[in-house]
Computed example of a mutant assay.
Amino acid sequence: MRWGILGAAKFAREWMAPAIHAAKGAELVAIATSDPAKAAGFSAFAPGMRVFDDYDALLADPDIDAVYVPLPNHLHVDWTIKALEAGKHVLCEKPIALKADEIDRVIAARDKAGKLAAEAFMIVHHPQFQRARELVQDGAIGKLAHVDAVFSYNNAGAVDNIRNRPETGGGGLPDIGVYTFGAARFVTGADCQRVTYADLRFENGVDVFAQVAADFGDFTYGAVVSMRMQPRQSITFHGDAGHLTLTAPFNANLYDVAQLTLETGNGVRQVERWPAANHYVLQVEAFGAAARGTADYACPLEFSRGTQAMMDMVFDKARNP
Score class of each variant (00 low, 15 high):
Gly4Tyr: 12
Ile5Trp: 08
Arg13Met: 03
Ile20Gln: 14
Ala23Phe: 05
Gly25Arg: 00
Thr33Val: 09
Pro36Lys: 06
Lys38Glu: 06
Ala39Arg: 12
Ala40His: 12
Phe42Gln: 06
Ala44Asp: 12
Pro47Thr: 11
Asp53Trp: 00
Tyr55Gln: 03
Ile64Val: 15
Ile64Ala: 14
Pro70Lys: 12
Asp78Val: 00
Leu84Glu: 08
Ala100Cys: 01
Lys112Trp: 14
Ala113Pro: 15
Glu119Asp: 08
Phe121Ala: 02
Ile123Val: 07
His125Gly: 06
Gly142Tyr: 02
Lys143Asp: 12
Ala145Thr: 12
Val147Ala: 02
Phe151Trp: 06
Asn155Ile: 00
Asn155Cys: 07
Gly157Arg: 02
Ala158Leu: 00
Ile162Arg: 04
Arg163Glu: 01
Pro166Thr: 12
Glu167Ile: 07
Leu173His: 04
Asp175Phe: 05
Phe186Thr: 01
Ala190Arg: 15
Gln193Trp: 11
Gln193Met: 13
Leu200Ala: 03
Leu200Ser: 04
Leu200Met: 06
Asn204Thr: 09
Val208Asp: 09
Phe209His: 14
Gln211Met: 13
Val212Phe: 13
Phe216Leu: 06
Asp218Gln: 03
Gly222Ile: 11
Arg228Val: 08
His238Asp: 15
Leu244Gly: 01
Thr245Asn: 10
Asn251Val: 02
Asn253Cys: 04
Ala258Tyr: 11
Glu263Leu: 08
Glu263Asn: 13
Thr264Pro: 00
Val268Ala: 15
Arg269Phe: 03
Arg269Val: 07
Trp274Phe: 15
Ala277Gln: 06
Tyr280Lys: 01
Val281Glu: 15
Tyr297Leu: 02
Ala298Cys: 05
Met311Pro: 00
Asp312Ser: 14
Lys317Phe: 02
